[in-house]
Design a protein around this nucleic acid. Structure first.
Lengths: 211, 211
DNA sequence: TAGATTGTTAATCGATTAACAATC
DNA sequence: TAGATTGTTAATCGATTAACAATC
């Protein structure tokens, strides 16, 4: 079994997909599954499934396959679904509001502990059961509450100064919905980008060129 | 110059990033740039930039580099920013509303021509300047108006039947925000997935394991 | 035991990086 | 012309797939 640090990003990105497929199988009442059956369902190869899982340990049994419930819980553990990582969200506009209310944080081992906006007309509003705070309180809040993850739903123009503040206050991980390239401007941080505009343009290109 | 069909997905996914970096350079008034300067800005290699661009043609000049404005417009043309691809959105909940109002469709060569929801209390509302229609009108609308792209912001449980209807009515491309695996259930369609939950879990794993 | 299927090593494939001749 | 930098080919790296011995 490899050290978790050695796991490549493509493997990590597939873990949530395994997890939700196993959840589905549990709901269907399936007790065991072979790598090739699961591969058929997910339209990937059985080899890849066995390779991926064996990065984390031997969860299967020769001649039998994998116990669905066991594997589901193992992957849940790997993904830390029963953690309680503290998350804050900055920028409670359309997207921010949607993320705050729509994403099931607790199911994924996160806890949304603060919402921030710079706009005085938004500050004080209650979103997802929480009062939106003023961005000027951001640093103090982070130093006291030590959130691990910040969600950025702010305009590109504000991203640099907000990220700088957050990094100075100890935040290292960003779920970045802003159109700003955090990795280019800061070192040693962890970033997942959700660049909606880029995603749409990629889709458009593929639509035009049938790929 | 390769046929557009031969362009690999990793290359296609980088195009929007080149585009927005060139836009930025234009704003800064930079007239020319070498592959290594651009590489420095984007934290990628100059080799990759030259490889990527040469899939589409020789846009540079030996000893000089690339003309920023020319390259910007070439990539815009490749991405089809002055097209008017017809897009519909199904599921006007939190996320759907945010996408409809926040994404700049016209800037990206798209036109949002219809919004649909199954919930009677949402039907009739005006979102992004458009009246939300009933999902029961979806097939007729698509047969008449022939949208190329559908945005799915619906629950997993509704995804199969909605996608089937859309495919039967001629839609081939999906911007999929639902937690449903379209590619597994339908062949020959083009899908860009935005699985927010998966993205958050990936970020969490990376945060826990510092990768 | 025989059959099935894993865990793991080896082969292949594809993407990225390096090198350099072409050329502006 | 000399210097710079591209376009393109070759080398490397990493991820995926195939194969098979181990074993339940």
């Amino acid at each position: 079994m490899a050290n978790n640090r050695d796991i490549s990003l493509p493997v990590v990105k597939r873990l949530p997909r395994y997890y939700s497929n196993l959840e589905e199988l549990m709901r269907e009442g399936v007790l065991r599954i072979s790598s090739s059956e699961l591969a058929g369902r997910m339209k990937i190869t059985a080899s890849q499934i066995r390779q991926d899982l064996n990065h984390f340990g031997g969860f299967g049994q020769q001649g039998y396959g994998y116990n669905v419930s066991d594997l589901y819980h193992e992957i849940g553990r790997i993904l830390g679904v029963d953690q309680r990582l503290k998350v804050i969200l900055v920028g409670v506009g359309n997207i921010g509001k949607a993320i705050a209310t729509q994403v099931n944080f607790s199911k994924r081992g996160c806890e949304l502990i603060g919402l921030f906006d710079i706009d005085k007309s938004v500050v004080g509003q209650v979103v997802a059961g929480k009062r939106v705070c003023d961005t000027s309180d951001l640093s103090d809040f982070c130093i006291i509450n030590k959130p691990e993850i910040a969600i950025l739903c702010i305009p590109k123009s504000q991203a640099y100064s907000v990220a700088e503040k957050l990094i100075d206050s100890g935040v290292t991980s960003f779920w970045n919905f802003s159109h700003f390239d955090l990795n280019v401007h800061f070192d040693g941080i962890i970033v997942e980008n959700v660049h909606l505009g880029d995603s749409l343009m990629t889709l458009k290109y593929r639509t035009n060129n049938k790929i």
